[in-house]
Structure formats: structure tokens, C-alpha cells
Design a protein around this nucleic acid. Sequence first.
DNA 1: CCAAAAGTGTTCCCTCTACACCCATGC
DNA 2: GCATGGGTGTAGAGGGAACACTTTTGG
Lengths: 229, 229
Amino acid sequence: MKEVLPTFNSAVSIDCVLFGFDEGELKILLIERNEEPFKDWWALPGNLVKPDESVDQSASRILHELTGLSNIYMEQYYTFGEVNRHPQGRVITVAYYALLRLSNEKSLKPLTSFAKKAQWINVQQLPPLAFDHLNIFDKGLEKIKRRIKYLPIAFELLPEKFTLTQVQHVYEVILGKKLDKRNFRKKILSFGVLKELDEKQKGVSFRAATLYKFDRRKYAKLYGKEFSF
Amino acid sequence: MKEVLPTFNSAVSIDCVLFGFDEGELKILLIERNEEPFKDWWALPGNLVKPDESVDQSASRILHELTGLSNIYMEQYYTFGEVNRHPQGRVITVAYYALLRLSNEKSLKPLTSFAKKAQWINVQQLPPLAFDHLNIFDKGLEKIKRRIKYLPIAFELLPEKFTLTQVQHVYEVILGKKLDKRNFRKKILSFGVLKELDEKQKGVSFRAATLYKFDRRKYAKLYGKEFSF
DNA sequence: CCAAAAGTGTTCCCTCTACACCCATGC
DNA sequence: GCATGGGTGTAGAGGGAACACTTTTGG
């Protein structure tokens, strides 16, 4: 591969807004930086794109380094390219949102290879963020607000088996408003992509709810057409 | 500004899918390349991002160089970052769609500073395109299909004064399907963002249609909430 | 028996859809 | 007078919104 391109190059980085849903709260994973600039500030996890990886691969790698997991659901949503967004040089960053099931066992223990520590923080109570990361977060939240209306991304935030009330809570917290229980159930079931299981919730001190699974096969047959919240 | 960043850098470019609407057809502006690689192939207009311009500014500049116009409506929609998408080196490209009024006077005479020639080509009849530009185009068309349902972008493709039938044609050609005339008119008028003028179409050999304008003030008052096609 | 959440139907209204004819103009 | 597109209303169906009570379970 011969390099005959004109010569201004800039660094390209990836930043990830990794969403998790836990006990009715929408959280994102933030890291505490251990390097200048913005040492000791909270920031979105991110890193530079390497020469031999695509931007998608780079985002996957960052998520893997952070959580130890592969195959996290993610989607690119915007590229931030202001000249002075990074104080130490020109860095254009490609932003991804990612969605993670926070099961009780594994939750809240991410690996921390490139930061002092990482922590899940409620999106309502974010601390000041490094760089333009608040802006990047805001656009990411906006995106999932729009996309949850036509893509079944709510199920990426839930365990494999879930109750309808849990699904409703995900919609409520992302859309930022209360929904009517009966109407919500009718609608979400009308898409025909949830499979009712023979199982019930366990360990709760009230009437146990029926568990459901997301049926990827049935969803694939819709070609994305019919899912419109 | 001290450069202390790690050292892999890549070139970043912009590619623009510039849409125009002319006599009922949706067209994009393509250039014929006069340099290797892909010399003599058709391609999307694009260029490298310069050190002192943001990606948005870079896209504006490219559109200006191409058409002589400023303030063309444009929006970033995706970044393409496969490792081998450019045969001569690592180039990550940020894609924009842009929408242009093709008025009869000025139409079809773009400047051609960085290509042999430029031409408006119907999106139904695209020639083979350089690089991954067909893919970039496809995603761009998909985006405007989605966005025309909740953003008033149709009016960016029309002259300042237009007939309702023209608006309908824009929707039909972007959505790729016929719409019912009466239902379309009811709906588009129900948003309350069109102002009926006292003027009629001129120079047609049939009953002259009423002209309308898009009313940006009224639209701004909606906060984007109510526009949902 | 009390607390907590599960689960369930109906009515009203509004919006979407389908559909066909007369009108105005230029040639 | 004819060809071309402009302009208009209604009925029926379907989907969205509002709304409250009984059931189940554990403690």
C-alpha cells in the first residue's frame, strides 16, 4: 500500500456511550482519567483508532477492554470534528452508543486497563465531563430516544428473560415519561416479537410476573417495517 | 498547541451526497475524477479535511467549491472507516448529505475546481462509482428517507415558492411510492407550516396552481414536535 | 391481613385510507 | 373543444388515549 496522499493527517479516536439499565435507572459507564489533559476528570471511554482496525473494530476493542465482553450491541451515531475539541492536537472522534445487560452477578466490575477506575453513573446525575464529552453524551441519548421507537433496542438492556414491566421501565426512562400500563402491554405485544415463557419471576414478595423473551426470528421476518412505537 | 498525542494518524476526508430535485426527478451531483486512483470514474464530491477547519466547515467548503453557493442545507450522517476503503492509504471519510434548490436559471452549472466535470445524475441511473461511494450514497438515501418523515427537508429541494403538487412529488420520489393527492394535501397543510400566497403558477398550459412558502417561524414554534409524516 | 405489583377491557376520539368528479387554462 | 393538471369531501376502519379494579404472593 503506497502512501501518496496529501499530507495533513489527524488523529482519529472513538468514544463510547455505554448504557446500562439497573434497578429502574439508566446509567452510563464513565472512567476517571489518569493522564493529562483532564487528569482526574470523568470521561467517556475511548481511544485512538489503530492503523489496522476499522472504526467499528476499534469501538468493539474499546468495549472489550473495558468490560471483558465481546458482541456488545453498538452503533455509530455521530462524528465530532471541531478544530479545538482536544487541547493537545487535532483529534476527530467517532461516537458510538452501546447497550449492555447489567445482570446482578457480573454488574459493575469492568476492567480498567486505561483509566484509574470505571463506574456506572445515573444519567440524571452526571459529573462534569472532560473534553466535549457532555455534548457527545447528549447526542447519544437523543439518538437512542429516537431509535427506541423503531428498533428493538430495549431488549439489549434487559436480561434474556424479562417481565413486561421491566420493558416498560426501559421505555419510560429513555423517553423520559410515564406510560400507561395497559396501553403499553397491548402495543408491545402487538408487534408479535415477544415470546411468553412458562416461567415466572422468582424471589419477589408479591405476585410473580410472567417472563418473556425477545424472539429474533420473528423480528427478522418483519424487515424492520412493523416496529413503530 | 503542543502535540503529545500517540502517533498513528490517518487522513480524514469528507464526501458529500448533494441531492437536487428537477422536473420530478431526484438527482445527485457526481464528479468525474481526473486523478488516480479511479481516474475517469464517477465519484461523490469530496476532499481531505484541512488542519484548520472543522468537519462541518470542510463539508461547507467542498459544497462551495463545487457550486459557488454558501449556506447549502447539509447534515452529517455517517463515518466510513474500513481499513482498506482507499487503495492508497488509510482514509476515514465523514459523509454528509446536502440538499439544493435547482432553479431553472442557475441549474446544472457547478464549478469544477477538483474534477474534469460535474453532472447531475438521476439516482435511478447511477454509473459505477469509485471507492465505496455507492455504499455511501445508499446510506445517504436511506437517511433522507427517514428524515423526511420528521424534518421539513423537502422544502430545501424546492424553490422558495412552490405548488403542493411539487411538494408531493418530492415526497414520492424520496419515499419511492405514490401518494394520494387529497390525503397528502390535508396532511401537509395540517402541520401549519405552509403559507398560502396570493400568487399563482405562471406559464403553464393548464389551470395555474396556488403557490406556497415554507414558514420557518411557525416551524420553529413547533420545536420539531409535531412534524411527523 | 396488609403491602406491593400483576394482570386485564372498553369507550371515545381522532387519524388514516380509499375513492371520483368538476374546474380553470392554454392552445 | 380538448388535453392537462388543479382542486375538493366523505364514509368507514383502525389505532391511540384515558381510565380502575381484582388477583396473587410473601411476610
